[in-house]
Simulated scan of single mutants.
Amino acid sequence: MTGRILIDLFTTLDGVAQGPGGVGEDTSGGFTFSGWQAGYPSSGVGPEIAKGMEGLDALLLGRRTYDIFAAYWPQHTDGPSGEIGQLFDRVPKYVATRDPDFPLAWQGSSRVGADLAAEIADLRERHREVHVIGSIDFVHTLLAEGLFDQLNLWVYPILLGAGKKVFRDDALPSVLELIEKPVTDAEGVTLLRYGRTDRTPEVDTFED
């Protein structure tokens, strides 16, 4: 059975996905709200993340997210987040970089990016669920080239205005399919799970 590429993103209501997890995580472009997700505690995100990680058997990450994960998760394999820490530490990690000198010190890490379409096809053959977490710059490439199977969005009721958006103007025109009913917690954070289809948007005119 061919595996799937799943993109997992935290986003604001106006589509900003930059630097959600911590102050200083991503301040590029003068972004002043890095850490916005950590500043808005959510009762439902944790359980849904744990549920979504059950099938994960590989990670595909951009360079910035890889550096953050490599510095954090190997030291957090115990405690409340220990199960996810152990999972991330154990599974293969694929890093999107063409820099041969980019350090890959975290165990099980290797690089991709020389021929991304072919490498994605290979990952689908080798793994059942490859998760792309965060990595917004890399996600833009996957969305532009249609190299994903499922898009999971945790949408927070926050407006930031400026910041890197989930969808840029070069996203591949596509019709996505809602594959599960939305889940909303007490804080208004909503999880949307979309599957990619081969359909493209059609146009028409409403008639009186």
Rank of each mutant, 00 (worst) to 15 (best):
M1D: 07
G3W: 02
R4S: 12
F10C: 08
V16I: 15
A17W: 00
Q18R: 05
Q18M: 06
Q18C: 08
G21Y: 08
G22M: 07
V23N: 12
G24A: 08
G24D: 13
S28V: 14
F31Q: 04
T32R: 07
W36I: 03
Q37Y: 06
Y40W: 08
S42V: 10
G46L: 09
E48C: 09
K51G: 09
G52V: 00
G55A: 11
L56E: 07
L59E: 00
L60T: 00
L61G: 00
R63W: 03
T65M: 01
T65Q: 01
Y66R: 02
I68G: 03
F69W: 02
A71W: 04
P74Y: 12
S81P: 04
E83A: 15
G85W: 01
G85M: 05
G85K: 02
G85C: 07
G85F: 04
Q86T: 07
L87P: 00
D89K: 08
V91S: 02
V91D: 02
P92Y: 01
K93A: 01
Y94V: 00
A96Q: 01
D101H: 05
A105Q: 10
Q107M: 07
Q107V: 05
G108V: 02
R111C: 02
V112N: 01
L116V: 07
A118F: 08
E119G: 08
R124V: 05
E125Y: 04
E125L: 13
H127C: 04
V130H: 02
H131W: 10
V132Y: 03
V132P: 00
I133A: 07
I136L: 11
D137F: 13
L143H: 03
G146I: 10
Q150R: 15
P157L: 07
G161F: 09
A162C: 12
A162S: 15
G163A: 10
K165S: 05
K165W: 06
K165V: 05
V166R: 03
V166Q: 04
R168G: 15
P173H: 14
P173I: 15
S174C: 12
I179G: 10
I179Q: 13
K181D: 10
P182E: 12
A186V: 10
V189C: 13
V189H: 05
V189T: 09
V189F: 09
L192H: 15
R193A: 11
T197V: 12
T200E: 13
T205R: 15
T205H: 15
T205Q: 12
F206I: 12
F206T: 09
